[in-house]
Nucleic acid binder design. Structure first.
Lengths: 122, 122
DNA sequence: GAAGAGATGAGAATTCATTATCATTATAGG
DNA sequence: CCTATAATGATAATGAATTCTCATCTCTTC
């Protein structure tokens, strides 16, 4: 059976509060403000479990590992700050995007990433 | 000084022939058809040198390492096949894309990736 | 509030891409 | 053709992200 631990609650809370894709080490950092003893292995275990449960989904952006965000959110894309390397959500999306593929290709999804400097870093 | 070796010529030819982004191991595989003794270290060295020269540019797509493509090509995007994991070029691009960022963010580039199955894999 | 079993935390182990090492080979220039 | 030296290739080393191990802890249930 699956237990409702302090650590897992903290990790869920982090994602609900932050509202942008997080890398495991970011989850650790934010999570330790709630449960200071939180360890990195626990973050990996729970992030994986929550992803398997469908509560989180994986986001792959340039610049290293996989990040995670709340699943079942409205369609959106991402902005990646070249300065602080944080990822932010972009809630608008051009709609004819999937028409752009070459002839004969079957498109089932797309990802759009904007690069630049976030409001904070400017 | 920089020498014009068989290996480097082979690697350049691979990129010119294939016309899509290649990961180092793909470069190795194609290059060995021209110079069978070609080694992986040489691929990494030359790909890096050609990138420093501005002849290649880096492409970061989901699913692992960096791929490379000919630099100085017209603006384009990529299609990533979920089945064979090859990357293809997409030559069309919606033009109002960079207007989508949140208020206060400064956009200096974008990447658009389509996912699906390529003509070959269907 | 005891006991059983899942979860945790710290660090070791693993994986995989990339880089460094170094003896050998091949190129450019004379 | 010769020489100096850049480049190569095989393999070891590195680095970073992720997973594993295991003793300990803490939920859950009775």
């Amino acid at each position: 059976m699956q237990r409702d631990t302090r650590q897992r609650r903290a990790i869920r809370r982090v994602f609900m509060n932050v509202g942008r894709p997080l890398a495991p080490d970011e989850v650790l950092e934010h999570g330790q403000r709630i449960v200071p003893s939180l360890g990195l292995a626990t973050v990996y275990r729970n992030v994986k479990a929550l992803t398997d449960d469908g509560w989180l989904s994986e986001v792959e952006l340039p610049g290293g590992g996989i990040r995670y965000e709340l699943a079942e959110r409205p369609h959106h894309h991402h902005f990646l700050c070249r300065s602080c390397d944080l990822a932010f959500d972009v809630h608008r999306c051009p709609d004819e995007i999937e028409e752009l593929a070459p002839e004969g290709f079957e498109v089932d999804g797309h990802e759009l990433i904007l690069f630049g400097r976030c409001a904070e870093c400017r």
